[in-house]
């Protein structure tokens, strides 16, 4: 190993500043949400307490968060189940060449990178033209899938790239059908990754805003409710809600990571 150069220390310092830039704002609202009843939207903090965190669960003048939260959970669960199962199927298809595979690959990528306003407007227009009314469960779900499915697919593609096909061949040589091979060999092997993908998809759906914003219909999901709040809430309850929902996302990511680690370690033994 070479001795560390000046470049290393400069870059390390830069990286440190970058991490501060990423997390700093989040940390300030964590601090500001832990204020007493006399708290305001800005520093300095007069007293510490859990008053505002409790306020989130009270009936609010500007809106109610319990129901949007439930909607986001339900929608997240449906989107996760769909995105995970569909992406497993399609990434298995991509292990061999088939006509139109390149086409489908680029279509999936376009769904990821198309400007989000086009998805929102497009689904809105489609519902308008067909005379359907937009709803978080139908049009909202479509908007969520246009974003979460490509990401789940790309991760699954990477997972199947590293998947050793000889296990399946062995199962098939022993006379197992395709379905049986999948349930008894492939699925248990990809399970840890699949749980990880599922939880990440869930947080993406749970936090999705731009694509859903114009097509959620009458009832808001949680991010939309929070967006509505930003214009008319002047108490730290807004920060408290932000803190809670961010902690919720963090715990999902943490569970995803540890589930993946534990399960893949079990398989090795």
């Amino acid at each position: 190993m070479k001795p560390r150069s000046l470049t290393f220390y400069l870059l390390a310092g830069f990286f440190g500043l970058f991490v501060l830039f990423l997390y700093g704002p989040m940390i300030t609202i964590f601090i500001l949400s832990l204020q007493g009843p006399d708290g305001t939207l800005t520093f300095p903090v007069r007293s510490f307490g859990f008053y505002w965190l409790g306020q989130v669960f009270q009936e609010q003048r500007v809106g109610n968060f319990v129901e949007p939260f439930q909607r986001s959970l339900v929608l997240g669960a449906i989107v996760t189940a769909l995105a995970a199962s569909v992406s497993v199927l399609s990434s298995m298809a991509f292990r061999e060449r088939f006509r139109g595979s390149t086409w489908l690959f680029y279509l999936t990528i376009s769904s990821l990178i198309v400007p989000s306003i086009l998805i929102s407007l497009g689904i809105g227009v489609m519902f308008q033209v067909f005379g359907w009314s937009t709803n978080w469960m139908t049009s909202g779900m479509g908007a969520h899938l246009s974003w979460t499915l490509p990401i789940a697919f790309l991760i699954m593609l990477g997972i199947f790239n590293r998947f050793n096909p000889s296990y399946e061949e062995a199962a098939r040589d022993l006379g197992a059908s395709d379905a049986k091979t999948f349930w008894e060999v492939v699925l248990p092997l990809i399970a840890p990754s699949l749980i990880g993908v599922g939880l990440l998809t869930f947080t993406l759906s749970y936090d999705e805003f731009t694509r859903t914003s114009l097509v959620s219909g009458q009832y808001n999901t949680l991010p939309l409710e929070i967006f509505g709040m930003t214009t008319n809430v002047t108490s730290p309850a807004l920060y408290a809600l932000g803190t809670l929902t961010t902690l919720f996302s963090f715990s999902m990511i943490a569970i995803a990571y540890f589930a993946y680690r534990t399960l893949s370690r079990q398989q090795k033994t």
């Binding site: 769909l82 199962s85 569909v86 992406s87 199927l89 399609s90 298995m92 298809a93 991509f94 061999e96 088939f98 139109g100 595979s101 489908l104 279509l107 999936t108 376009s110 769904s111 198309v114 086009l118 998805i119 407007l121 497009g122 689904i123 227009v125 489609m126 033209v129 479509g142 908007a143 899938l145 246009s146 499915l149 697919f153 395709d178």
Partner: peptide
């Protein structure tokens, strides 16, 4: 047929929530 069957759900979802909406934007 297998790869086509496996890839079908994703194709259908993308057609419904990406291709048709954008084509309709073009029409409208």
């Amino acid at each position: 047929l297998k790869p086509y069957v496996l890839a079908a759900p994703q194709t259908v979802l993308l057609l419904t929530f990406l291709v048709i909406p954008i084509l309709l934007i073009g029409v409208v």
